[in-house]
C-alpha cells in the first residue's frame, strides 16, 4: 500500500515532499560516492568496480538477514571491518600492480574487476532479485505534509555522519594530512619519509569500507542482484565530477544536486527522463566546468 496515496492529494505538500525526497535520495548517493571520491582524490584512480563492492555489501546484508535474521544495521559495523579487509586484499592483489601505470591500464583493470565480480556473484547466487524487509523499511514517518520511511532517514543520517567524519579525519589527523600530502605531491611526500604505497593501501581500504557499509544501508531499500551496483555507480561518477573530482564536501553537495535533478525531473517530465537529465548535466559540467561546480582549485588535488 502506498502511504502517500492513502494520505490523499490534498494532504501532501508537493514541494515539501520533493525537497525531502531529494535530501534522502541525495544521502544515499553521497554514501556511495564518498568512497569513490576518496579513492579518486588521493590515488587518482577511477575505480570502475566500486559498484560491485556495493553489490557485495548488499549481498552480505541480504544473507545475514535471511540466514541469521540479523538486521542490516547490526551488520553495518561488521561490514565496515570486512570491507576494509577486502579493500586491503584488492589493493595487494590487483591495484598495487597498476597504481603507477597509465590511466588506460587502470581503467581496463578496474572494469575487468567489475565484470569478474558481477559474474562471481551471478555464479554463486544466481541473477534473482533478492529483497529484504526489515521492520524499519515499512515504518512510514509523516511530517508536515510529507511521508518517507525510516530506512531512508537512517541511510541519510549515516551518509552525513560518514562524510563529516571522513572530512574531519582528512583535515585534523596526522594520517589525514599524510594522505593529502601524498595526493598533492607523491615524490615530495616520499622525501618526507612517507611510505606512499602504505597510504594508497589505506586509502583504498577506507574507500571500499565506506561502500561496503553503504551496501548494508541500501539493502532494505533496493533489490539485491549481481548488477545492483551499476545503477548507483553511474550516478556516483556524476556526483564525483560535479563535486570537483576528489573533493569530499563537494561530493555531498553534488549528491544533493543529482538527487534534485532526479526527483524534480521525474515529477515534471516522468521517471523515464531522470537518467537523460542527469547525464545531460554531467556532460554539461565536463564541457563548461571540468574542475567541477565547486572546484576553485583545479582537479589535480585533494586540497584544503
Amino acid at each position: 500500500m502506498d502511504p502517500a496515496r492513502r494520505l490523499g492529494p490534498a494532504e501532501i505538500d508537493v514541494f515539501a515532499q520533493l525537497a525531502v525526497s531529494t535530501l534522502l535520495l541525495g544521502g544515499i548517493y553521497a554514501l556511495i560516492a564518498v568512497g569513490l571520491t576518496l579513492i579518486f582524490g588521493i590515488m587518482r584512480v577511477v575505480n570502475f568496480a566500486h559498484g560491485e563492492y556495493l553489490m557485495l555489501g548488499m549481498y552480505l546484508a541480504f544473507w545475514a538477514f535471511s540466514l541469521l535474521a540479523l538486521d542490516p544495521y547490526v551488520v553495518l559495523p561488521a561490514s565496515l571491518v570486512i570491507f576494509f579487509v577486502v579493500g586491503l586484499l584488492t589493493y595487494a592483489l590487483v591495484m598495487r600492480g597498476v597504481i603507477h601505470a597509465s590511466h588506460n591500464v587502470q581503467i581496463f583493470t578496474t572494469v575487468g574487476l567489475s565484470i569478474a565480480l558481477q559474474n562471481v556473484a551471478l555464479v554463486l547466487w544466481t541473477g534473482d532479485f533478492r529483497v529484504i524487509r526489515p521492520w524499519h523499511s515499512s515504518v512510514v514517518i509523516r511530517l508536515g505534509g510529507t511521508a518517507f520511511n525510516l530506512s531512508q532517514v537512517v541511510a541519510f543520517a549515516v551518509a552525513v555522519a560518514l562524510t563529516i567524519g571522513l572530512l574531519l579525519f582528512m583535515r585534523r589527523t596526522h594520517t589525514g594530512r599524510v594522505m593529502r600530502a601524498t595526493a598533492q605531491d607523491r615524490d615530495a611526500a616520499t622525501l618526507m619519509g612517507i611510505d606512499t604505497d602504505r597510504v594508497y593501501r589505506l586509502t583504498f581500504a577506507i574507500g571500499i569500507a565506506c561502500v561496503g557499509a553503504a551496501g548494508a544501508l541500501v539493502a532494505p531499500l533496493y533489490a539485491t542482484y549481481p548488477q545492483a551496483g551499476l545503477q548507483f555507480v553511474l550516478i556516483a561518477y556524476v556526483v564525483v565530477v560535479l563535486g570537483g573530482l576528489g573533493d569530499m564536501a563537494g561530493a555531498l553537495l553534488g549528491s544533493l544536486i543529482v538527487a534534485a535533478v532526479e526527483v524534480a525531473g521525474s515529477y515534471v517530465f516522468g521517471a523515464a527522463w531522470k537518467e537523460v537529465l542527469y547525464f545531460v548535466l554531467f556532460i554539461g559540467v565536463l564541457v563548461f566546468r571540468p574542475a567541477g561546480l565547486f572546484g576553485q582549485r583545479g582537479a589535480e588535488t585533494l586540497g584544503a
Binding site: H174, R177, L191, G303
Partner: peptide, 18 residues
C-alpha cells in the same frame, strides 16, 4: 615542492613525519 593546498604549519609537521 611544498604541498600547496596545506598551511605552512601542516607542511612543517609533515616534514616531521618520520
Amino acid at each position: 615542492r611544498l604541498f600547496p593546498f596545506m598551511t605552512v604549519t601542516e607542511n612543517l609537521l609533515l616534514g616531521g613525519h618520520g
